[in-house]
Design a binder for these strands. Sequence first.
DNA 1: GATGAATGAGGTTTCATTCAT
DNA 2: TATGAATGAAACCTCATTCAT
Lengths: 222, 222, 222, 222
Amino acid sequence: MSSFENDTYTAIANAVALEEGRLSPKKRLAVFAAVECFAELGYEGTSTKMIADRAEIAEATIFRHFGTKSQLLMRIAEPVVKHLLAPAVHQEAEALMAQHKGNLKEIARAILKSRLAFLRLYEPLVKILLQEILVNEDLRVMIITQVAPVIKRASGNIMANSSGPLPEHERMMRSIVSLLLGYFFHRSFLQPDREWDDDGEVDFLVNLVFHGFGFDPIEKRP
Amino acid sequence: MSSFENDTYTAIANAVALEEGRLSPKKRLAVFAAVECFAELGYEGTSTKMIADRAEIAEATIFRHFGTKSQLLMRIAEPVVKHLLAPAVHQEAEALMAQHKGNLKEIARAILKSRLAFLRLYEPLVKILLQEILVNEDLRVMIITQVAPVIKRASGNIMANSSGPLPEHERMMRSIVSLLLGYFFHRSFLQPDREWDDDGEVDFLVNLVFHGFGFDPIEKRP
Amino acid sequence: MSSFENDTYTAIANAVALEEGRLSPKKRLAVFAAVECFAELGYEGTSTKMIADRAEIAEATIFRHFGTKSQLLMRIAEPVVKHLLAPAVHQEAEALMAQHKGNLKEIARAILKSRLAFLRLYEPLVKILLQEILVNEDLRVMIITQVAPVIKRASGNIMANSSGPLPEHERMMRSIVSLLLGYFFHRSFLQPDREWDDDGEVDFLVNLVFHGFGFDPIEKRP
Amino acid sequence: MSSFENDTYTAIANAVALEEGRLSPKKRLAVFAAVECFAELGYEGTSTKMIADRAEIAEATIFRHFGTKSQLLMRIAEPVVKHLLAPAVHQEAEALMAQHKGNLKEIARAILKSRLAFLRLYEPLVKILLQEILVNEDLRVMIITQVAPVIKRASGNIMANSSGPLPEHERMMRSIVSLLLGYFFHRSFLQPDREWDDDGEVDFLVNLVFHGFGFDPIEKRP
DNA sequence: GATGAATGAGGTTTCATTCAT
DNA sequence: TATGAATGAAACCTCATTCAT
């Protein structure tokens, strides 16, 4: 049995508590077991009985607290996405920019590292979101609603700090997100047992974003 | 009801027929309806009754032909991944390299375009794979088994045709795949109703990969 | 609908309750209906829906309590065979021997009568066991496991109380069991509507076992 | 795979052919596979698909030849019970009596041996009959109809050849049948892998029937 | 707050059987 | 004669959910 005593579950519990108020012990266990099961088996692949068994509580207790299974998912996913993703990114970006004043590459590196740490911290929830976003209308709407302004603001920040005119903000943002999620997906979900060098990867990505792969010195722009 | 008469479903039927032998009309319909339902609602979210109804066949007919629901998924997914992805990529890469001899950028552009076309052609199947890969052990193993050698060979080809020493093949391959899938995911699944400029995106990605975003000319390496 | 209020069903419920703990009313009904159906139609010939209908409960209730149809059978059959057959036989044999000290024929008569009463009390269950023992591996193993030591001990008791050397214990035990079951099978299953004289049959069997049919006047007892 | 080339299956095929006319090869295979499956798994536990698979024929072929599954059972069981059991017993009993004129014990021994050989020859069918007689109305009626007169005649024969007044024919017949079937059941179905001494058992049973177990030395024959 | 009991609806799968070829 | 394809009905079982305690 997993004891649920680690940073990940503490962080999730804190996020959920922000919206639900203090969690009773069994409600807390329900949240943890639900996250674990949903991440392992998918939302549809998980039965409320499984959750109850893993949490060692009665099935009815889950319904007492969350009403329906789909509410259970949403009331865990939403606070995590909302209260932790949204404000944190903004504040943090500001702070990093202040810290590395002017040095775009350093700022990029710092942001990517922090985002990667964030993904790692919320790994099971990220897995749930990635799976369900394709299939669960409610969740997709919620995520888009929550994430869109963050992306927009972050994009704006980068632009404001760059020297020249920058077109294609969206493509750039999408590229960065794709690269980071692509890496995270590989390291955490496809081959979780390999040794991974997160810092090395971030360096690589920063270089890619600033200079490309560096294939052909001769073909470089003047 | 969807009539299933388009390139996508023809291509899928052909791929499946390679492993199953000629498909009887109802078996063919079962395949189409299954792909549609799985893509829309996910594997677990789809009932065999839904598939039968959409195909306008009896539920039992599905089981007569595929044994179990999970076999139904695998016996559609595997041939598509196997017979169409694997050999095609290789031959095509060779052809493109011959065609654009030496011009790496042109080769990259051509490959990305062709891969994007491929993703578009098999869009519903790609959606199924993306969802289930996180949750379905069998499917994940199958995909990794089929895809790994292709990636490796493709990677080797690129390397062989480049002038300088090229480290980090894997990171480069992963980056390209991430960028392409990230774009495709956005355009086809998150905002399928927007207007998208596939060629423009490919150009953007090729540039990114060869030169980066081009943020700061002053900071360039010597 | 059968009201299930008779010695047979009370005895079965008591036996089952020994292993399952107090039976909720619907669980009790499920047990009764299952016994009735299995006895009438055989295990394979009975559907869980039939049982539910006869018990006037929901089908799901059966599965909530017993998990699977085959568990339903086993968790009824095992306690009846185990808790009622095994210890009872032993104690009773001791008691009878004490009571009829030395008089082997009286002991035999008493034992056969009591075993016949036992078969009558558990008639539907006996029917189930007789049918399924040929076809159901689990049940066969369970029965053999439970019955073997009882037979052995009973055999030992007879031997210990007999005056001369007694070979062929097993054949003797088998013969007695065959005779008793053969009679019971005929009276209860093949021609249940005839009038039967249980005491007369026991007398006949005791005589057979002690003296044979008495075919030959020359060889007859004095 | 069983090749079905042995006395048992030849005997069954001959019996069935008496009523069905010459069996086409596939029909023959269907009969064999059906007997094997019914004996192993019971009538209800066997699906027509299993039979078809084991016979390596198409399921539809079974229905072409036998109409329904229950007809399949009856049209195998009935001829075996009818054409082989009924006349054989009579003729044989006559012959044995002629051969061992007057010697009741020898006659009994010979009859028991021959009946045991018969049970062994038709072992799978005996198993089917024993199982289904409790549960299958049609089969039970058929068996009783076929067996009753044989029993009666056999009983009459014994009586006619005995010296003294013989009451309780039925009990005697039942006892003998019980003893023989009890032994056969044990040796062939409960512990088929043990070494069994059929002749020894028959001797034991004949002695039992003529003299009892011989418990009491005082009452023993001189 | 927590639960054991109960269930209607629906899930996947199996079945005996039909029919066109 | 033999069969591959097809199916309606029903099998076993799971599910999310309700309710009395």
